[in-house]
Design a protein around this nucleic acid. Sequence first.
DNA 1: CGACGTGTTGATCTCTCTCAATTAGAGTGG
DNA 2: CCACTCTAATTGAGAGAGATCAACACGTCG
Lengths: 252, 252
Amino acid sequence: MPLHNAAATETACADCALRRLPLFIEHSAEELTLVQSLKHREMRLGALETLIHEGQTDAPLFTLLDGWAFRYKTLSDGRRQILSFLLAGDFIGVQQKMGDAAAHGVDTLTPALFCVFQRDALWELHRRSPTMGFNITWLTAHEESLVDDTLLSVGRRSAEERIATLLILLFKRAAALQADAGAAGVPFPLTQQHVADGLGLSLVHTNKTLRKLERRGLHRIADGRLFLRDVKALARLADLYGDGRPPQRPLV
Amino acid sequence: MPLHNAAATETACADCALRRLPLFIEHSAEELTLVQSLKHREMRLGALETLIHEGQTDAPLFTLLDGWAFRYKTLSDGRRQILSFLLAGDFIGVQQKMGDAAAHGVDTLTPALFCVFQRDALWELHRRSPTMGFNITWLTAHEESLVDDTLLSVGRRSAEERIATLLILLFKRAAALQADAGAAGVPFPLTQQHVADGLGLSLVHTNKTLRKLERRGLHRIADGRLFLRDVKALARLADLYGDGRPPQRPLV
DNA sequence: CGACGTGTTGATCTCTCTCAATTAGAGTGG
DNA sequence: CCACTCTAATTGAGAGAGATCAACACGTCG
């Protein structure tokens, strides 16, 4: 994804790479102008850098334009839980109330490009374009449903099932951002430590489970790319219904 | 909380019991009229009934006016994860995209009163009152932060720590809805099975852990009420900082 | 070339789960 | 008033998934 490299040259919203993705909806010229006017600047971070510190009080709003990142929380003794992974198009920072401390940190996984908005952009957006405001609400709700899915995994799935679920869901999200679906695989910039922290598992057990699935031919991770070798088997493990099909309650 | 009992007599938004709670912000007369116009009807359920079935496609929007409920997901073999508990004032149903299947079920814990809105009320609200729209966005984001907290618990806290965390957080939320904070305790309509499903634990282990904490004098649950006996000790277990204070990363 | 980050594997250890049984209370019907 | 049933809470015992501890391999980098 060749975005402009020179710090001085910022992309106009109308030319934003995100808009080229089939995933994103059309916006009117006025909406684009509005967003453009709220856009404060762009920001570029390297891999494994911190965008928002846990407990930071003045974090602005961001949109992730390119790259991977993740939200997380830590306990005082260092135990870390990754709350969600962020891909291009994701909105960052709605969670913390204005003037409040950030409830979670955000780190990058890869070099990443962010669109930075002023603190009050959220309100301005609502005020000046209810349509966009509505979209934001919906986006926020969608983010929550991702966390819901993870909570189900971490709370009720076995290690194998959790890994299968994560691989499928991340694959789908990443695949939606690129042209060729299956053959080339999708980028997979997570270390096993990230996988572990995202699934509430230990690093060692994550490694062992990952290897087990790989040896069974369900997937393959190599050179920072993920390939799904046996989606059927993975989906069976993950107990994922085609999409949104209601689960069957046992007759017991 | 004496709400009207006769099915025919519905409360006007201006007289809504929720507004009397110090927790809720003021709204202008126009805003109340708007909400009133979008309000479809009220709905009353008994304890342990289902408001929204998992996978249901046409669920409307609700506000919980009185009582307790919870959102949950289940796997096909019956394993259930409770995603969040719902108390008076909580909004229900933003998560599912219009026309989409509900990603989670909602059951009541106690008899409950709901305010029912049409499917497109969310959009109307945004369109006709950006202020309210903004509030909805914020409310949705806040809901997510609750799920984030739970995910941290389930992913990284021990059974003892999870229980302590849940007790404190539920106590706080319930206490905010009533006058007397400490002495009388707060309602606690969850069975141990609910606690277990909310924390990703088994019923048996939940029971044992609960008893251990109770025997240590940290809390007491009796007659459907929860009393916190030693908040300090509970907070220490839960690793909860006063409120939003950033956690200390270990120097290791 | 040594230090470091990441991945890998084996050997324990333990927290939590599963299985089983008992108690207590609420509701029902005879 | 008393069996009978059902649900929720409780407790003990054994089993197991996953955590922790320890080494080692490999590639990158200053």
